[in-house]
Design a protein around this nucleic acid. Sequence first.
DNA 1: ATGCCGTACCGTGTACGA
Length: 260
Amino acid sequence: MRIATWNVNSIRARVDRVTDWLERADVDVLAMQETKCSDDQFPTMPFVALGYDVVHCGFNQWNGVAIASRVGIDDVHVGFDGQPTWSDSAEARALGATCNGVRVWSLYVPNGRTVDDPHYTYKLEWLAALRDTARGWLTADPKAQIALVGDWNIAPTDEDVWSVEFYKDSTHVTPPERAAFSAIVDAQFADVVRPFTPGPAVYTYWDYTQLAFPKGRGMRIDFILGSPALAQRVTHAEIVREERKGKAPSDHAPVVVELS
DNA sequence: ATGCCGTACCGTGTACGA
């Protein structure tokens, strides 16, 4: 079984690239982020034509998360318990579904914008709430197979950015953000991709501007975190840099994990 | 070749991204 996550940066602009990749990638479950559309706008048909069922959570042109699966989608949940709101509104940043026995959460962690912005505080609260809720899932069932996948908008170590100097005053690298990420790892959700994609200079995101991709100026911010029972099954993982190349790519690459 | 910012919105600019 192969599970992937991909920040697609608009599914309507990217549906051909995404489905073209699915045809080649032998992926059973694809979690998507930043679909940038409402539920009624999501292009479901191209996925159905390839044998995938799709669930989507999108309220407007911002955010948006989806899961496509060819191995079933059950117990769909929009948002996680205790998920913080932004300006008193729920945002489309978390979608959970059980696919062939694995609880998959497609997550789009708030960006934070700048360190002095209310959005940064929201980001930290969002991550703390996710940690608490996810920890509860494992307390209830220590053998649960859970995959927390998506765009975490955090570079956990200095090795995960092309230049520490470039990002020194930015979000994504601050100690509180890194602590929030570590807290989720400490809650027994391990980065199951890193052992198969060692650094340095291994990234999942490259800015569109200033030739960042060909110059190797990226960040590692997209992760697949697995519960102990899930991590035990991982046999391989990869970051598909090829999908950042060519015409009209997303600024993120897909990340794939293979389970026994 | 990895290639010079993108996407969405009732829009002729602004918000958001990281």
